[in-house]
Design a protein around this nucleic acid. Structure first.
Lengths: 209, 209
DNA sequence: GTGGTTCTTGACCAGTCAGTCAAGAACCAC
DNA sequence: GTGGTTCTTGACTGACTGGTCAAGAACCAC
């Protein structure tokens, strides 16, 4: 949906984006109808379809914006840090900080992950960030600071930790983001740096029943 | 919804459960209508509402069954293992094995987590399992094997790793579960056992921009 | 076979939804 | 003011939804 918008038009579009974000996050995508949105703002239905060709397109726009935003905040945070391991740590911290101040958007990212039709857009957005972290992990390995392993897998492990802690402690329990950052970092760095022989020496004969 | 069911009735109920599980997992809860389900099986609509009072109840039933199933598989796996750390490892491995062979159900658990109305049922089911792992973590700390920290948070960190790796490598990429188990365990045990002073000595002056 | 229970049918209902469109208002450049 | 563009209105459409229900078939115990 491309249109030439005046200043007024851009304002209206933003209003739709913001209101819809809040509603999608608190009541869910499926439970929020287009009518809910336009009535919440107090405009006619034509307004909605003037700016967006469909409800799905609106959601994708919110999603895109959120991911660009998060990524930018990560990039800014690590910009001047040369050390690979330190970059990873700062990346974790900045992600948690962002997720803390954008809980609405976290809810939408979570939803998008569970919906077949939004999966591709989500994956596409995360791809770059994942590759970025994976590169740092690889560098850390080359320097002998991070134990050997699949960099991409380790990256996803980190992502899993931050996501889960965000969901449970920030989203469900409403904790402050700063309260879990140290623990998240400690766990992830422990997982990355590791201890050789955790498996083989300390815990022999490991099998799944 | 309680009914006295004959053998035939129990079979029909199972058929509905199984078919709906498959459809919910592949096409999503919202995109699967009751009509889809009964037409897929080839019965009238009354059949559905004979066995379940609503679509939501059917889903909750699937959810409950899945969680009981997963939990049972974990319990069986760790039953004869006394060592706390080893129990955690086996727990991770058995979870991954279960998620590997029940990918349908993983998708449903993911969906349920993102839907306000199914959140409570999900949390209720996970609560016991989380408390269980947390107890092992605590024990490991008391024994001086696991570094000090919030046991529940560490438990969720583990959960986050297994979930994310399952989603990305099993669900999206279709890898074999056994291929990631070692890495998942290594990361989690590294995160639990940790290295003292990771933060304070190796990486001083850490701040978020 | 009789009577009661379990199970099945499918038309039907009331409501909701995303999306359309003809009409016109507001704004703006000239 | 004129003409063109941007923006807004809200009634309307057609599709689809979860759920109901009266009727009857199938099954079973006696």
């Amino acid at each position: 949906m491309e249109r030439r918008l005046t200043a007024r038009g851009r304002e209206r579009r933003r209003q739709l984006l913001d209101f819809a974000t809040e509603r999608f996050a608190t009541r869910g995508y499926h439970s929020t109808s287009v009518t809910d949105i336009i009535e919440g703002i107090g405009v006619g239905k034509g307004v909605f379809y003037w700016y967006f060709s469909s409800k799905e397109e609106l959601f994708l726009e919110i999603l895109r914006e959120a991911m660009v935003n998060l990524r930018k905040s990560q990039q800014d945070a690590i910009a001047n840090e040369p050390d690979a391991v330190h970059r990873i740590e700062i990346g974790i911290r900045s992600s948690l900080a962002w997720l803390d101040t954008h809980r609405n958007l976290f809810a939408l990212l979570e939803f998008a992950a569970s919906e077949e039709r939004f999966g591709p857009a989500l994956r596409q957005g995360q791809e770059v960030a994942v590759a970025d972290v994976a590169r740092q992990v690889k560098k850390g390995m080359a320097e002998g600071r991070i134990r050997h392993g699949d960099p991409e897998l380790l990256t996803h492990a980190i992502l899993g930790v931050t996501n889960q802690l965000t969901r449970v402690f920030l989203h469900e329990r409403g904790d402050k983001g700063s309260a879990i950052a140290d623990d998240a970092v400690a766990f992830c760095l422990g997982g990355l740096l590791g201890q050789d022989k955790i498996l083989s020496s300390a815990l022999p004969h490991t099998t799944v029943r």
